[in-house]
């Protein structure tokens, strides 16, 4: 494999064109969780973006180009919830957050601007502010943490794809050969981002973590997509992506405890 300097995670820019183009579907997993604050870190380690916040609400957005099963959505949110609680942040029950977002979203007609008929970022941000206001009243939430799953691009060189802090072989197992090392170009990849929103929906923090490639080079130079059923089927990949996206916010996380049995 050609050696290259390790690529640092690129800061996720919520204004990037791909995201502007994308229509997002808000979806929320309803999973039970045990409330309570896990071992709180030293006060000095608390990230500024969370301020004095002890309680946050957590939600998931999935780009409409992806099909993610409800159990997989729940598993992803569970990873993030555990990471937050391990860092001493309490998370509002996910059902409560889902219910509030559903009602605000319906009232805001899916964040679509009635004049243009298109997704409106200002309407979305205002909606998130409204969501946080309701959740503060109902459950004491001081920040809204939104996990976003979206399709991005990985750069390929030396047969290896690199994006948002991770790397993967760019060639399918059945097509690997000596030529694989010469592969270069771009491939679709799946990333998640953690966005933290505060008053009036203002974006306080945004960081990506790569999850997995969405396509690879197959036989005869054909690009072969990774199937939707495989998007979130690897817990190790999920944990890695969550760590990358949360590390600047929470610092290096200790090993996360295994999820509690249902």
């Amino acid at each position: 494999m050609a050696s290259e300097p390790e690529q640092r995670p690129v800061r996720y820019d919520p204004g990037m064109p791909a995201l502007r183009r994308a229509r997002f579907v808000l979806t929320f997993a309803a999973i039970g969780l045990a409330a309570g604050v896990a071992a709180a870190p030293a006060e000095g380690a608390r990230p500024q973006v969370l301020g004095d916040a002890r309680t946050v609400a957590l939600a998931l957005e999935v780009q409409d180009a992806l099909i993610v099963d409800r159990v997989d959505r729940a598993a992803l949110l569970e990873h993030v919830r555990r990471a937050l609680e391990t860092a001493g942040v309490e998370v509002v029950p996910l059902e409560t957050t889902a219910e509030v977002i559903r009602s605000v979203r319906e009232a805001a007609r899916d964040w679509v601007d009635p004049a243009t008929g298109k997704f409106s970022r200002p309407r979305y941000a205002a909606g998130m502010g409204e969501v946080l206001r309701h959740l503060r009243e109902r459950a004491g939430a001081e920040r809204l943490v939104v996990v976003v799953l979206w399709v991005t691009e990985a750069h390929v060189s030396g047969g290896v794809a690199r994006w948002h802090g991770v790397e993967e072989p760019a060639v399918t197992p059945a097509a690997r050969s000596a030529w694989s090392r010469l592969r270069a170009g771009k491939l679709e990849a799946l990333s998640l981002a953690v966005n933290v929103r505060g008053e009036a929906g203002s974006l306080l923090y945004s960081e990506p973590g790569g999850v997995r490639l969405l396509s690879r080079f197959g036989r005869n130079d054909k690009i072969t997509p990774v199937l939707d059923a495989e998007l979130l089927d690897d817990p190790d990949r999920l944990e890695r992506a969550v760590r990358l996206a949360l590390a600047p916010l929470l610092g290096a996380l200790p090993a996360l405890a295994a999820p509690a049995a249902p």
Partner: peptide, 10 residues
């Protein structure tokens, strides 16, 4: 293949 695997999972 994508059709049958995503339905299988769901």
């Amino acid at each position: 293949l994508g059709d049958i695997t995503i339905l299988d999972r769901m």
